[in-house]
Design a protein around this nucleic acid. Structure first.
Lengths: 228, 228
DNA sequence: CCGGGTCATCAGGGATGCGTCAAAGTTGCC
DNA sequence: GGCAACTTTGACGCATCCCTGATGACCCGG
């Protein structure tokens, strides 16, 4: 779940934000001043910060700097000041966006979504999800490679697709209908013979003893399962 | 140097932006409509896009989607529409920021800086990515040069672009669609014959035995893979 | 013991995708 | 305006993959 830190000294604004955010399944922390904001940011590690510039204790720009000293969390500034100078200062201090009050809730939420979205990592960083190992072979989902005894195994597109669905559900039973729909398309829910042919090919290429499979298990009448 | 793509059909706005950006040492491309914008984005790889929503040919939101289909480049939307709905649509389609006209140049530039800043990769870690070596040849991504047996190999722009995408994903399979979109642009997702022609040329220039490639591996039906 | 159903395996034929070559079209430069 | 380099397009042979039908093994209930 996405965690939001709301920093504002006006209770009614905080209330409005909290209600709207919680309704949209965000987890929300709130701070009434800069000092609390910095503490909460450190202890709660929010995924995005909504920061009012007019705080009682610290200058808003100093709060931004305080955060930017150690984190790249997206900061969305909220302010009553329309002056161009204020905006430039806040943005150059490290803010990601600047919304002037009064603001539309829809717009604010959209900007929030944009800020969270682009902070999402892409590509590497999920290595634990991209490779699956067994004693006999290794499947690399990102590189689309299968390695067996040091050598890459050549899989056809259909074979790979089938393997991918099974591996993504390691340990779970995948029904025949589900497999057929995923690999061959929605209208192929009943052609179970395709499955038999391609499961045999996968086993021949990957199992130690294809006629006594250890990893590609048949659940008679139901479907197939991949086990490490 | 940071490269900016300005998309707007009003010449005076483009002029103002270009002058201001160039004065601040940005490299600037300009497009008067959506189609040109998508082409320029594909061929020039800007670091940030400034996009007016009111274009003569395509809907602005469609341009955003066209870009987001293959790149995460920051998009800063410029628009005369103040309606909250428009903003939400643009932001949810993948825009990073939304500025309403008339805008202050200082503010726009500050938002631009913010967008570019947060797109910067975190920390070091790409130094080793700038050159890739194989037994047969060396690719220098920064210098855009390929060396083989002590001599530089001449590559055409398209050949280089294709090589670059493959090398940046060394070891990973890159799908045909992805390659076509990266090199030829978002609307070329199906022209797989281009790929065949240019892969052949790359192999002829770089492989020891072009008809038995060791580094530019084709995965039938799926895509291509570069191996060291 | 027999019969129906599901599953595994095999092999052939049609369709598809890839590599190659050559020619036409485009672009940019002198 | 002409030339050279590059890109696009089309055609062809060939390898590979996908589908299909046939056959036999296995499991269960009758």
């Amino acid at each position: 779940m996405t965690r939001v830190l709301v920093v504002d000294d006006e209770p009614q604004i905080v209330r409005a934000l909290v209600i709207n955010l919680k309704a949209r399944k965000y987890e929300v922390d709130a701070a009434p001043d800069g000092k609390t904001a910095l503490e909460l940011a450190a202890s709660r590690h929010p995924d995005v910060v909504v920061l009012d510039l007019g705080l009682p204790d610290l200058d808003g720009v100093d709060v931004i700097r305080g955060l930017r000293g150690w984190t790249r969390v997206p900061i969305l500034v909220l302010s009553a000041r329309h002056s161009s100078d204020e905006k430039v200062q806040a943005l150059d201090a490290g803010a990601d966006d600047y919304v002037t009050k009064p603001f539309g809730m829809d717009e604010l939420l959209a900007r929030l979504r944009a800020a969270v979205r682009r902070a999402e990592p892409v590509g590497p960083g999920e290595d634990d999800l991209t490779t699956v190992e067994t004693e006999g072979f290794t499947v690399d989902l990102a590189a689309k490679k299968v390695n067996r005894a040091g050598k890459d195994v050549r899989l056809t597109p259909t074979e790979w697709h089938l393997l991918e669905v099974l591996v993504r559900n390691t340990g779970r039973l995948v029904s025949q209908k589900q497999l057929l729909r995923e690999v061959w398309g929605p209208s192929y829910g009943t052609e179970t013979n395709y499955l038999r042919v391609y499961m045999a090919q996968l086993r021949r290429k990957l199992e130690k003893d294809p006629s006594h499979p250890e990893h590609f298990i048949t659940e008679p009448g139901m479907g197939y399962r991949f086990e490490k």
